[in-house]
Amino acid sequence: MDDFEQLLKNALGRKEQPPAFEAKVFAAVAGFKTRRRIFWRWASEIVAVMLLAGGFWMRYERETQDRAAGEAAKARLQLALKVTVTELSKIQKTVRTSTEEE
């Protein structure tokens, strides 16, 4: 057996795991799980904040639209009453003038 074969045998030979190997593996797995949990917690919190912000924005938009529609309806009502009162005032004025003339 030459040196090369000896080296190969040593390299491929069964070796006992170091005493802390299992603990390291479990710690690595636990660390991965923790990082994944933190990631998902952050992701869900970001999504929740985005949904909340979206909800508030939609509500604000709806309220803005409703307010605009309400103000438009109020303006139309104002215009209708303005025409009505103006015409009635003109008629009243004409009637008064006619009565005074008579």
Partner: peptide, 13 residues
């Protein structure tokens, strides 16, 4: 209606 004249943007005539 008459009382609205001069109010609510309606001119008092």
């Amino acid at each position: 209606l008459k009382e609205l004249g001069g109010h609510f943007g309606i001119p008092k005539i």
